[in-house]
Deep mutational scan, measured.
Amino acid sequence: TEEVEKIVRELQKRGVSQEEIQRILKRNGIDPRDVEHVVRRLR
């Protein structure tokens, strides 16, 4: 989703690792598959 993408991009800008990003998003109830998808697209 748009929202997830924004969050991921923001965290990446701050130098947060992929694993940490995924952990944060999972904690916020976001589907890990969505996270994977977004992270892969932004690489």
Score class of each variant (00 low, 15 high):
2 E>C: 15
42 L>H: 12
32 P>G: 05
27 R>Q: 12
26 K>R: 10
25 L>I: 05
24 I>L: 09
28 N>K: 13
14 R>F: 08
20 E>N: 06
9 R>M: 07
39 V>W: 01
4 V>I: 13
37 H>P: 02
24 I>N: 02
8 V>A: 07
3 E>W: 13
22 Q>G: 09
10 E>I: 08
11 L>M: 10
1 T>D: 09
27 R>N: 11
5 E>G: 04
37 H>N: 13
23 R>G: 10
24 I>R: 06
20 E>Y: 05
30 I>C: 13
11 L>H: 01
40 R>C: 15
1 T>W: 12
35 V>K: 01
35 V>S: 02
35 V>I: 14
21 I>W: 06
38 V>W: 03
29 G>Q: 03
15 G>C: 14
34 D>E: 12
31 D>E: 05
21 I>N: 00
18 Q>D: 14
31 D>W: 02
7 I>R: 05
19 E>M: 07
42 L>W: 00
11 L>Y: 03
11 L>E: 00
38 V>Y: 01
32 P>E: 09
14 R>D: 05
6 K>Q: 09
40 R>S: 10
9 R>N: 03
27 R>W: 05
39 V>H: 05
3 E>C: 14
34 D>L: 15
12 Q>Y: 15
27 R>L: 12
20 E>K: 06
4 V>P: 01
22 Q>M: 14
36 E>Y: 02
30 I>V: 12
8 V>K: 01
9 R>S: 05
8 V>T: 02
18 Q>F: 15
28 N>I: 14
1 T>H: 11
33 R>C: 15
42 L>A: 14
29 G>D: 03
2 E>K: 11
38 V>H: 03
19 E>Y: 06
23 R>I: 11
43 R>E: 15
18 Q>E: 13
38 V>M: 06
6 K>P: 02
10 E>G: 06
21 I>F: 09
39 V>R: 05
21 I>D: 00
4 V>E: 01
28 N>F: 12
43 R>W: 10
9 R>L: 07
17 S>V: 03
14 R>H: 09
13 K>R: 10
38 V>L: 13
10 E>S: 07
35 V>D: 14
29 G>M: 03
33 R>L: 09
12 Q>V: 14
20 E>S: 05
43 R>P: 14
10 E>C: 14
29 G>W: 02
26 K>V: 15
31 D>L: 03
35 V>E: 01
9 R>G: 03
41 R>D: 14
25 L>P: 01
37 H>Y: 07
27 R>C: 15
29 G>F: 03
23 R>T: 09
9 R>W: 04
3 E>Q: 11
26 K>I: 15
29 G>T: 03
5 E>N: 04
16 V>R: 05
35 V>N: 01
6 K>C: 15
27 R>V: 12
41 R>G: 05
39 V>K: 08
30 I>N: 02
11 L>V: 00
10 E>D: 09
40 R>F: 00
38 V>P: 01
11 L>A: 04
39 V>L: 15
41 R>Q: 07
16 V>N: 04
41 R>H: 12
32 P>M: 06
3 E>A: 11
9 R>Q: 05
1 T>Q: 10
24 I>A: 05
28 N>Y: 13
7 I>H: 04
14 R>G: 06
43 R>Y: 11
31 D>R: 04
23 R>C: 14
38 V>T: 03
12 Q>D: 05
6 K>T: 06
2 E>S: 10
25 L>W: 00
40 R>G: 13
15 G>F: 03
30 I>D: 01
27 R>A: 13
23 R>A: 12
41 R>Y: 03
43 R>I: 14
16 V>C: 15
30 I>R: 02
4 V>Y: 06
8 V>P: 00
43 R>K: 11
11 L>P: 00
8 V>H: 00
18 Q>C: 15
33 R>G: 07
29 G>E: 03
40 R>I: 10
22 Q>E: 13
2 E>M: 10
42 L>C: 15
22 Q>I: 15
12 Q>A: 12
19 E>L: 08
1 T>L: 14
4 V>D: 01
21 I>P: 00
11 L>Q: 01
10 E>Q: 09
16 V>M: 12
1 T>G: 08
10 E>P: 00
28 N>S: 12
21 I>S: 00
16 V>E: 03
7 I>K: 04
31 D>H: 05
17 S>D: 07
41 R>S: 06
2 E>N: 09
29 G>I: 02
26 K>M: 13
26 K>T: 13
35 V>W: 11
11 L>I: 02
23 R>P: 02
5 E>I: 10
43 R>C: 15
3 E>G: 08
25 L>G: 02
31 D>Y: 01
15 G>D: 03
23 R>Q: 11
23 R>H: 11
4 V>R: 01
21 I>H: 00
38 V>A: 07
12 Q>N: 08
29 G>H: 04
14 R>I: 09
7 I>M: 13
20 E>V: 07
28 N>R: 13
1 T>S: 08
26 K>S: 13
3 E>I: 11
18 Q>A: 12
20 E>C: 14
42 L>R: 12
13 K>C: 14
21 I>Q: 00
27 R>T: 11
41 R>T: 02
26 K>A: 13
35 V>A: 05
34 D>T: 14
17 S>C: 11
19 E>W: 09
31 D>V: 02
23 R>N: 13
14 R>N: 10
28 N>V: 12
33 R>I: 09
14 R>S: 08
39 V>I: 15
39 V>M: 15
3 E>D: 09
26 K>Y: 10
41 R>C: 15
38 V>G: 01
32 P>F: 06
41 R>N: 11
4 V>F: 05
5 E>A: 07
4 V>K: 01
15 G>W: 02
31 D>Q: 03
11 L>N: 00
18 Q>M: 15
19 E>K: 10
14 R>Y: 06
37 H>D: 14
20 E>D: 10
21 I>V: 03
31 D>F: 02
35 V>Y: 12
1 T>F: 13
33 R>P: 02
32 P>H: 03
10 E>A: 10
9 R>E: 04
7 I>T: 05
28 N>W: 13
35 V>L: 07
29 G>V: 02
39 V>E: 09
16 V>Y: 12
21 I>R: 00
43 R>D: 15
19 E>H: 09
27 R>Y: 09
28 N>D: 08
35 V>G: 01
19 E>V: 07
42 L>V: 14
27 R>S: 12
36 E>N: 04
20 E>M: 09
21 I>L: 08
2 E>W: 09
5 E>R: 05
28 N>P: 03
34 D>R: 07
22 Q>A: 12
42 L>N: 13
13 K>T: 07
10 E>F: 07
16 V>H: 12
8 V>Y: 11
12 Q>R: 07
4 V>Q: 02
3 E>P: 06
16 V>P: 00
34 D>K: 09
6 K>A: 10
38 V>I: 14
24 I>F: 05
28 N>Q: 13
28 N>A: 13
6 K>M: 08
22 Q>N: 09
39 V>T: 11
22 Q>K: 14
37 H>A: 14
28 N>E: 12
13 K>A: 11
7 I>Y: 06
36 E>F: 02
21 I>G: 00
43 R>S: 14
4 V>S: 02
6 K>S: 08
5 E>W: 13
19 E>P: 04
13 K>I: 08
24 I>K: 02
34 D>C: 15
13 K>N: 10
25 L>R: 02
1 T>V: 12
36 E>R: 04
11 L>D: 00
23 R>S: 11
19 E>D: 10
33 R>Q: 09
32 P>V: 06
32 P>N: 03
13 K>W: 04
25 L>F: 00
22 Q>V: 15
24 I>M: 07
29 G>N: 05
36 E>C: 08
40 R>A: 08
7 I>A: 08
15 G>M: 04
3 E>Y: 12
30 I>L: 07
1 T>E: 08
42 L>M: 05
36 E>Q: 06
33 R>A: 11
17 S>K: 04
8 V>N: 00
8 V>G: 01
20 E>W: 06
10 E>W: 06
17 S>G: 07
37 H>I: 14
30 I>S: 02
15 G>E: 02
43 R>M: 15
23 R>L: 11
25 L>C: 13
22 Q>R: 13
31 D>N: 08
17 S>I: 02
34 D>H: 09
18 Q>G: 08
26 K>G: 11
12 Q>T: 11
11 L>F: 03
7 I>F: 09
22 Q>F: 14
9 R>K: 07
24 I>P: 00
17 S>N: 06
40 R>K: 11
6 K>F: 08
15 G>L: 03
40 R>P: 13
2 E>H: 10
2 E>V: 09
23 R>E: 14
33 R>E: 09
33 R>D: 09
18 Q>W: 15
17 S>Y: 01
43 R>F: 15
18 Q>L: 15
38 V>N: 01
42 L>G: 13
8 V>L: 08
30 I>H: 08
37 H>K: 13
15 G>K: 04
12 Q>E: 05
4 V>N: 02
2 E>R: 11
8 V>R: 01
19 E>S: 10
13 K>D: 08
15 G>Y: 02
43 R>N: 14
16 V>D: 01
6 K>R: 12
2 E>L: 11
2 E>G: 10
39 V>Q: 03
3 E>K: 10
8 V>F: 11
42 L>T: 13
23 R>D: 14
12 Q>W: 15
